[in-house]
Amino acid sequence: MNLQELLNKEILKTDNFDITIFEIMVVAIIVLITIIIIKVLKFLFKKIEQRNREEAGRRQALFQILKYLIWVLSITLAFEALEIKITLILAGSAALLVGVGLGLQHIFQDILSGVAMLFEGNLKRGDIVEIKDGTIGKVREINLRTSKIETRDNIIMVVPNSRFITENVINWSHINKYTRFSVKVGVAYGSDVELVSKLLYECAKKHKLVVAKPEPFVRFLDFGESSLDFQVFFWSHENFLAENIKSDIRYSINKAFNENHIRIPFPQRDVYVNPHETKK
């Protein structure tokens, strides 16, 4: 058997088409070339991103779309190489495709949402976001169908892109500036409110992750049921560490109050018993 006969040897034979060794080789070459083209494109896009990080989301979206288009073209060429008519496959499985389409409508919605997110640039890798259920995390990846965010517990959450489009999402990093946070505390009635305000201000100001400008400030919130309520406000660039910063400030407040004999009250209830009622 010569080389030509070997290449034309049939591996699979049906009523509609035959598959030979030569056709399998052509398909393998098409797939290999497709992989190489995608890798080259990825390398070029990374080079462009290193030179200019602006509009990185749009470039990522363009790369993802090009990658999918290249694969669609590659699969089409592979079917043509095998002499399989795609139109016949689509016509023969029309009912099945309708059912699959209905089942995959949420996936297509996620893909379209991913394209919109990447092109609009409202959400980028590294942004700190808060989704509807209250989860706060850092965006690690934005893909066409899903995105990955890393929570404060170092857990990776895979979130469908449609949630970022249809639900309210807070992007803490969108304006690339510091964010305001606050800590509430109540002190006992009779405390020196001026001293309380001074201590709260100092506790917030001395934290290394609190920005100097704008300065922290204290608000006398209200005359509570069992306490005088205060709130200290401060700004920080470290949105992802906000809860840790608040915790540090609370430690400082507790220490400062103890050193200055300022008491943090707890709710109390006085119960009066009528002796005449108990006798009944």
Rank of each mutant, 00 (worst) to 15 (best):
2 N>H: 08
8 N>I: 09
8 N>V: 10
9 K>T: 11
9 K>G: 03
13 K>H: 13
14 T>P: 09
16 N>I: 15
17 F>C: 13
21 I>K: 09
24 I>S: 00
24 I>L: 06
29 I>W: 07
29 I>H: 08
32 L>D: 10
36 I>G: 00
37 I>T: 02
39 K>L: 13
39 K>Q: 14
39 K>W: 10
39 K>P: 05
40 V>H: 11
40 V>S: 12
40 V>M: 13
42 K>G: 15
44 L>C: 15
48 I>S: 06
48 I>M: 07
49 E>H: 14
54 E>F: 03
56 A>R: 06
58 R>L: 12
60 Q>P: 00
64 Q>E: 08
64 Q>H: 10
65 I>F: 08
69 L>Q: 10
72 V>M: 04
72 V>D: 00
79 F>V: 07
79 F>I: 07
80 E>S: 10
83 E>L: 12
85 K>P: 09
90 L>A: 07
95 A>C: 05
96 L>Q: 12
97 L>I: 14
98 V>F: 12
99 G>D: 10
99 G>T: 07
100 V>S: 11
100 V>W: 13
106 H>V: 07
107 I>S: 13
108 F>Q: 03
110 D>I: 10
111 I>D: 04
111 I>C: 11
112 L>P: 09
113 S>D: 11
119 F>L: 14
120 E>S: 12
120 E>T: 10
121 G>T: 03
123 L>A: 06
126 G>Q: 05
127 D>I: 04
129 V>S: 04
129 V>K: 04
132 K>M: 10
135 T>Y: 07
136 I>P: 06
137 G>Q: 00
138 K>R: 01
140 R>E: 14
143 N>T: 02
143 N>Q: 04
145 R>C: 06
146 T>I: 01
148 K>I: 13
150 E>C: 01
150 E>T: 01
155 I>L: 07
159 V>A: 02
162 S>G: 03
163 R>C: 10
170 I>Q: 06
172 W>H: 12
172 W>R: 00
179 T>V: 15
181 F>V: 06
181 F>T: 04
181 F>I: 10
181 F>W: 15
184 K>W: 10
186 G>A: 11
187 V>T: 14
191 S>K: 00
192 D>W: 05
193 V>R: 14
195 L>V: 02
196 V>E: 02
198 K>R: 13
206 K>R: 14
206 K>H: 09
207 H>S: 09
210 V>P: 14
210 V>N: 12
212 A>F: 01
212 A>K: 08
214 P>K: 00
217 F>H: 01
217 F>Y: 12
219 R>V: 15
219 R>S: 14
226 S>C: 11
228 L>C: 14
230 F>P: 13
232 V>A: 01
234 F>S: 00
236 S>Q: 05
236 S>R: 01
237 H>F: 11
240 F>E: 00
242 A>I: 01
243 E>K: 04
244 N>I: 08
245 I>Q: 00
250 R>C: 08
251 Y>L: 06
254 N>Q: 15
257 F>V: 04
258 N>Y: 08
260 N>P: 08
269 R>T: 04
273 V>M: 05
274 N>C: 01
276 H>K: 07
276 H>F: 04
279 K>P: 10
280 K>P: 02
